Computed example of a mutant assay.
Amino acid sequence: MDWDKLRIFHAVAEAGSFTHAGEVLNLSQSAVSRQISSLEESLNVALFHRHARGLILTEQGELLYRTAHEVFSKLAMAEAQLAESKDRPKGQLKVTATQAFGSSWLTPCLLEFIDLYPDVEVDLVLEDRELDLSMREADVAIRMAPPRQPELIQRHLMTVHLNIYAAPAYLKRHGIPKVPEDLDQHRIIVYGNDTRPPVEDMDWLLVAGTRKDKPRRPILKVNSVYAILRAVQSGLGLASLPEFMVSEGTSLVRVLPELQGPRIDAYFVYPEELRNSKRIQVFRDFLLRKVAEGRMQG
């Protein structure tokens, strides 16, 4: 089977159209279409149902796609292992984390890591959705829940608490809630349920201390934890925020300290194939040390 045609087929199956696959491969739409037709002729099967709205894999196409996906995944892993320096960590390290954790906790740590390991090229991808590590969308991930994908190694990194915070200006204007029921009279900012939040029960403030027949209505929904922080800082309302986002340098006030939100367990996750990667080993150990230092200072 022709590797070039198989690579093009895999890209088309991922993209769902000849045009989008051509953009990824830097080929014309007609060139991509010709290669797929040639592959179908050589195999004597149709791999796609062609529709006006795009392409759908046939049953035979699904079989070939699953096999090609696995092959290209293993090749990508092999490439990473071959590129690994035997003595000094070197090469690209693609890390994915949630927007909030990546921007508030992880990014400020990177100066020290890059000074320690200047030959490691850190590529930080901040996404609240889970990237596919098996397809090398990233080398490692920091996840706010145990990974669901098989064949991933996980190492517990830290436990994060969600607390309630407000700006002094907001509390001066609206008063300080004394008991959970007081939240009924306050402006509450939440993540909302239109998109999948980075952690479960992100909007627990809407039900804490309420009767089931009287749910609270938020003053604002915004699908970014960092944007929630900025809204709280502006005095718009109060919200549940991870404790790592509210450093000692901020002026935010914790309210109702006896009311704790869900605990979030953060995990350092990477594929089994990269178990022996020096880049991943030193990055994992560095993060564990930074977490331990934070605990000692706290």
Score class of each variant (00 low, 15 high):
Leu75Thr: 04
Ala68Pro: 06
Ser134Leu: 14
Gln154Tyr: 02
Lys172Arg: 06
Glu248Pro: 05
Leu206Thr: 08
Leu259Ile: 09
Ser251Gly: 00
Arg34Tyr: 13
Ser37Pro: 04
Ser30Trp: 10
Phe244Pro: 03
Thr250Ala: 06
Ser103Asp: 07
Gln233Val: 03
Thr250Trp: 08
Pro177Ile: 01
Leu252Pro: 06
Asn163Lys: 15
Leu57Pro: 07
Met77Phe: 15
Gly298Met: 11
Pro257Ser: 05
Asp2Glu: 08
Arg34Glu: 11
Val190Ala: 04
Thr98Asp: 07
Arg230Pro: 02
Pro150Met: 03
Ala239Glu: 05
Ser104Asn: 08
Ser73Asp: 04
Lys94Ala: 13
Gly294Pro: 03
Pro262Gln: 00
Ala100Asn: 01
Thr159Leu: 00
Val120Arg: 11
Leu133Tyr: 08
Ser251Glu: 14
Arg7Trp: 12
Arg50Asn: 08
Arg284Asp: 06
Arg155Ile: 10
Gly102Leu: 06
Gly102Glu: 05
Tyr65Asp: 08
Lys90Glu: 14
Gly237Pro: 01
Arg66Phe: 08
Glu243Asn: 09
Thr250His: 09
Glu70Tyr: 14
Val125Leu: 12
Ala83Cys: 03
Leu241Met: 13
Lys290Tyr: 01
Asn44Ser: 12
Ala52Asn: 13
Pro198Ala: 01
Val24Gln: 15
Leu43Ser: 02
Asp194Pro: 04
Leu236Met: 15
Gly102Phe: 02
Asp201Phe: 02
Ala15Thr: 04
Lys278Phe: 11
Gly91Ser: 12
Lys221Phe: 07
Arg155Met: 07
Gln233Arg: 13
Tyr65His: 14
